[in-house]
Design a protein around this nucleic acid. Structure first.
Lengths: 225, 225
DNA sequence: AGCTAAGGTTAATAAACCCTTAATGCTAGG
DNA sequence: CCTAGCATTAAGGGTTTATTAACCTTAGCT
């Protein structure tokens, strides 16, 4: 697997060095820029998986940079996280709708930041759920809002149901073994009985329609529109 | 496209120089006056797109100047923003309705001011609406003055409540995890219990309406108009 | 400094909700 | 028609959140 690319944009060289060093140590490929314009250029050239943007920068600030990124067809879906300084005028950072995926408050301990970065990338690499385009089956999953739409009707699913659904729909038609389901939704160190899965499947069937969830006896379950 | 014209009126020469310089650097055509009367005259001669008015000035103050501008047929639609000192007595300008389009609190960092100015001009060039008229949910947040309006009624929220609200409303509908909330409102090195968030959420619900804040169990909270 | 009031945090209890399991019924394939 | 595997239901237990009130800290005033 290729290294994942992170673009880091901040006007303080210290920050670039510190965070950059720590991210590289963790196996990321890191690009740095100390202003929005250079950041944009680097982003266009290298197609990063994640952009960490300082909000407050001279010249083009983080929000402006974010907007420009979102305007670029090749980059509009890149992950963007804002670095926000809490001691700075907080008023400037909120209320914008530039399309950030996360906020990360400074100051932050390097290892905390690294784990946030990993979490962000994991969220997006694992189960790739389309939010924008409504798939043909009429079920849309919005992970950001933790909300599911069934033919336009909004449903609020509990966490486990939501995650199970997200898993199954991440590869429609594919059979997920009970083992796989347990590992992904419950985690490897949690021990629950097999019936637990059944019950959650049933709830999904109840809420989203029986026909969408097929049982493959002795193997597992699959989502099929 | 022609340069956009900004008229700057303040009795302090330092301010005129500093702000004027920064606006010019960003490509605006800047006129300055150090009192209301000269400001009016300049406005009539040059037809600026935006007037930045200091509230406190000897002689004709900002409010008076503003009224006169609004009385002038050629200028009644010009954008006007007041420069107000943060520690000034707001009661003077609170119920004031001379027709300002924005308040900008001093002291303000030049780059912040520039982006405010741009936002103002952008607002007026393209579409209209907003800020006063508010997003659809009827809750307006004035981060500059740490004040919130709920359906036109002014609320003074304490700092933590305000920042929590600002965070949640910065991306309506989106779920913020407790972790993210803590990082952004409290900071990464402050340690507080989870119940603290609950309590602040409750206060917001009390003041702004229960329905606007939704709990996503096991995940976090979201603001939803 | 001392006083007062407001903001912020926590503890404690109650309530809501979700997860899990047990118990029982069902179905398909041998 | 027997059995392994799945479906269904409801209840219990446990976890997460709501709510309230007390406590501590801080800011503003005198």
């Amino acid at each position: 697997m290729n290294k994942q690319k992170v673009l880091l944009v901040d006007d303080e060289q210290d920050i670039l060095d510190l965070i950059g060093f720590n991210l590289e140590k963790e196996g990321f490929e890191v690009f740095t820029a100390n202003n929005g314009r250079d950041g944009l250029e680097l982003a266009r050239k290298n197609n990063p998986d994640l952009v960490l943007l300082d909000v407050m920068m001279p010249g083009m600030d983080g929000m402006e940079t974010c907007r420009e990124l979102r305007d670029d067809d090749n980059l509009k879906n890149v992950l963007i996280a804002f670095l926000t300084a809490r001691n700075e005028d907080y008023s400037q950072i909120a209320g914008f709708d530039a399309g950030a995926d996360d906020y990360i408050a400074k100051p932050i301990k390097p290892r905390v930041l690294v784990s946030r970065v990993k979490a962000l990338l994991r969220r997006n690499s694992g189960a790739e759920i389309e939010v924008k385009e409504a798939p043909s089956h009429g079920i849309v999953i919005d992970k950001e809002r933790y909300v599911v739409f069934k033919e336009g009707v909004q449903l609020n699913l509990p966490k486990k149901e939501f995650e199970l659904l997200a898993l199954l729909t991440s590869a429609p038609g594919r059979v997920f073994t009970r083992e796989t389901i347990l590992a992904n939704v419950w985690g490897n160190d949690v021990i629950v009985g097999d019936r637990t899965i059944d019950v959650h499947i049933r709830k999904l069937r109840e809420k989203l329609g029986d026909d969408n969830f097929k049982t493959v006896k002795g193997v597992g379950y699959k989502f099929e529109p």
